[in-house]
């Protein structure tokens, strides 16, 4: 059987400090291909921290994250960066585009860092992705010349640049109006989770977005809570 795309085992993250803060405690989750998973929970519950750990943006204090079956805790900084580049795509609440670069250049950045395609192929692929997100006309605009929704779509395009296995999104609709929100959710659903072998993990407050997910992981105080699905079934 194929391993899950992302799997965590007893994942724990404790922030050092005078008073150590436990962000995430002994979490076991697994993200399978084709899934659209929402991580929900109250503010400060550790849901974003969990996402960063799953996305190798942070190093767990204890436990293990497996990407496509490979353990990552022993990997070097460079190897983790390479793994992020090849297999993961990120979308944050703030678009986090590089302000000096056009939309097209921003999308091409991860491709150029990976360096697998020729310059011409990168151009074509970046234009295709932007085009499929309805941004063909905005390819040469810089982030400050675009609306919030457009920027977030460029950020999604950039996350898709290297054809990742999993896209991890942290409150991707947190700063968007309803129309843009619907658009972004639609893209995440159809463009990524719809494709064979891919998965999307979204951290969100937005019940509308969470409702679209195949599965919800509810985090409270750094631990996996009872799935809210069950609770809603009971109230029905």
């Amino acid at each position: 059987m194929k391993p899950p795309l992302i799997e965590s085992r007893k994942l724990t993250r404790i922030l050092d400090g005078e008073v150590p803060a436990t962000l995430v405690s002994e979490i076991d989750v697994s993200i399978a291909a084709g899934e659209f998973v929402a991580i929900t929970g109250p503010s400060g519950s550790g849901k974003s921290s969990l996402l960063y750990l799953l996305g190798l943006l942070d190093i767990p204090t204890a436990g293990e994250v497996l990407i496509d079956g490979r353990a990552t805790s022993k990997l070097s900084e460079e190897a983790r960066a390479q793994l992020r580049l090849e297999t993961l795509g990120f979308v944050f609440q703030f678009h986090f585009l590089l302000p000096e670069f056009s939309a097209l250049e921003n999308v091409m950045l991860p491709m150029r860092a990976l360096g697998r395609l020729s310059a011409a192929q990168m151009q074509t692929r970046a234009k295709d992705i932007l085009g499929s997100l309805g941004l063909a006309d905005h390819a040469h605009k810089r982030p400050d010349q675009m609306s919030g929704g457009q920027r977030q779509r460029v950020a999604i395009a950039r996350a898709l640049a290297n054809d990742p296995l999993v896209v991890l999104a942290d409150e991707p609709t947190g700063n968007l109006d309803t129309a843009s929100t619907a658009q972004v959710i639609g893209i995440l659903r159809t463009m990524i989770a719809g494709e064979a072998g891919k998965a999307v993990v979204v951290v969100t407050h937005d019940t509308g977005l969470a409702a679209q997910a195949d599965r919800r992981i509810h985090i409270v105080d750094g631990k996996v809570d009872q799935p809210p699905v069950v609770i809603s079934d009971v109230t029905d």
């Binding site: 960066a81 580049l85 993961l88 986090f96 950045l109």
Partner: peptide, 16 residues
């Protein structure tokens, strides 16, 4: 600094 974080999160190696 923020751009550095962005590039690193995308998977740019620290050396680059």
């Amino acid at each position: 600094t923020r751009d550095i974080a962005i590039m690193k999160s995308l998977g740019f190696p620290a050396g680059t």
